[in-house]
Write a protein that binds this DNA or RNA. Structure first.
Lengths: 197, 197, 197, 197
DNA sequence: GGGTAAGCGAGACGGTACGTCCGGTCTTACC
DNA sequence: GGTAAGACCGGACGTACCGTCTCGCTTACCC
């Protein structure tokens, strides 16, 4: 119904230019690829995309939102929730998928830039969380909750979720290290009930 | 030896003004307290501290370095490494100390700002790690290494360290949540060998 | 014939909206009255009149032309040429009428704005002269020409006309002074043959 | 004494760059000569003079003030007041000098632009009057005042002054006509006592 | 105690980007 | 074909900082 109303919407005036939208995203991606996020400015995006500055401001509140939209083309937003019946297998699959992006250096640079921006701009922080954090948290929470009853005891599911994403973001943002393949195994070990051994 | 050389240093010309140094740090602290880190600029630091811009540039490479020095007055840099004989007690003490700063909102804001800056400026990132990350990592590594032999198996000490700091930084930088008191207990549970039950 | 064709003109499509025309003139008048001519823009006229920008551009080449049309509602365009038989009386009447507008501050502000625009835009300058300058010049020329034979000598009628309008415009545009009542008498004295004393 | 104090002035900080000042004036002159005053913008002045925008804003409140300063290099500001003993000769000399600038098309274009700006900006209007209007008015007033006693009667000196400058500005700003040589003679005739015939 | 060298506050400099506004044009759906 | 709506590119506005530079002054060591 809502969709219908939106589709029916009067839509007066000239329609948004899809060409300009793509040009902006492409220019932003290209600038960051060449000179890094620090060199990104709305002025330069407009200049190099051949788009009016006002057009950028009309559709994106900050340059970080431009970058976020560009990144969404590279990363799947819909997180598949594995359900193999085995907690361990589910976890392993989820982690393997998640870490794959952490190894794509282009994606990592953008994620770092967005996280930085989120520190400085609370409004953007909220959009960032809604887009890049909440979905994945929910997925992992679902996986771990299935197992809740069997867990030894005093560790809340939400804390376990924080452990997983904490390690990932910590390595992305604070340490200069890369992800290695054993990390998945180690995290699975930490998260699964140990009493079954 | 190095210290000696520095002390012996010719030191011709006028000496560095301690008054100006303090004024700069005070102004930076005050600006951030009032308007947030986003409002901080070297221009404004100079203006409000009554110091020449050149003086700021002479002694600090970026405004983040000013903030970092100001923060060092609020946080202990030398991390005491507890050694009670009990891994669990050592861990609990270390975590309690570490989390205390995570609850001081003024400190948290500065840490977030510095982390943001570190994303955008690799040179600063290195100084930031050397100052705020490496010492604490080394301390926790020492604590956990004592126990290494007794751990079940496949989880490296460095990964356990990442788990601890990962959770902390993740909550500081990504989530809007606060630290609660149970977190220490949960982390200790996760990190200590479970075979002792 | 041409007129006939125009009158017969097929008039295909929608006719010009008189409502919009009035709304544009009213908005322009209102904006200038509130914030002065410097605050006038076609964008704002369209916004405040509820008219499409394109509609303004279709009917008026510049914002100054909008103002000019608005002003024509306040000032008589057809200049009555007094003919009392006495040069002095004719002059006095003509000058009194002309100066009346120079005392209406609302009219003065618009005239100043139009004169300013005429300096910067030659095309508009021509339309401005045709509308606000030529008629009055012709009227005064007629009055003074009747007397030409009786004038002492070397001053051309056109120069006398320039003297009259020169004083008026000079006070409107360059000096911050107002018109006073004695000016009419003084100008009449200067312009009428002095030999009749 | 005042001069001394100004000369003694502390003069802290870097001195104003004379090179930049000249570059700004030259660029403004060149832009107007090429594309007309309507094409002048502070942005373009800065760009073409190789000067920072802020530098222009630091020293000139509006672009019209830049133009005014540039014009002062072309026109004498100190008005010599002739005193030959004969009113007629003094007037003739003063008018001949004044009209000379009215024939220099480059000067005329700038004067028209400044007059236009003065209509739209009251602050500038005052500076414009102080610089280009008041000195000349004072000079002519002095000349005419010497003769005051001999004048027939009811025309104030200030009105006569307005007549002279009125004709000049009227032809510069409103009419498309040029000055011709007979104008001086005609104005002298109008202004000198007629009883001497 | 004079020379000299570095630090100091002040502030101008060339740049770059900010976010806003407006100029004209173009496109859309409606009337 | 006119109309309101509104997006489009271009470009100027005036401001804020950037990092550098250049003043005249102060401080403090060194000969």
């Amino acid at each position: 119904m809502l969709v219908l109303m939106e589709t029916q919407r009067a839509a007066r005036g000239r329609a948004r230019s899809e060409v300009s939208r793509q040009a902006v995203l492409a220019a932003a991606t290209q600038i960051i690829g060449t000179d890094g996020y620090a060199a990104l400015s709305i002025e330069r995006i407009a200049r190099e995309s051949g788009v009016g500055k006002q057009t950028v401001y009309r559709w994106w509140p900050t340059k970080a939102d431009v970058v976020m939209e560009a990144l969404l083309h590279k990363v799947e937003v819909n997180i598949p929730i594995p359900d193999t019946g085995s907690l361990e297998a589910d976890l392993r699959q989820f982690l393997t998928t998640s870490l794959r992006f952490g190894r794509m250096s282009q994606v990592v640079e953008l994620l770092r830039a967005l996280a930085a921006e989120a520190q400085l701009n609370p409004d953007f922080a909220e959009r960032f969380r809604a887009t890049f954090v909440d979905h994945r948290r929910a997925a992992l929470t679902t996986i771990l909750t299935r197992d809740e009853g069997r867990r030894p005891a005093p560790v809340r599911t939400s804390t376990l979720v924080d452990v997983v994403f904490g390690v990932i973001w910590y390595r992305l943002l604070i340490l200069p290290t890369e992800f290695d393949d054993d990390l998945v195994t180690e995290l699975v070990t930490l998260l699964t009930p140990t009493g079954d051994q």
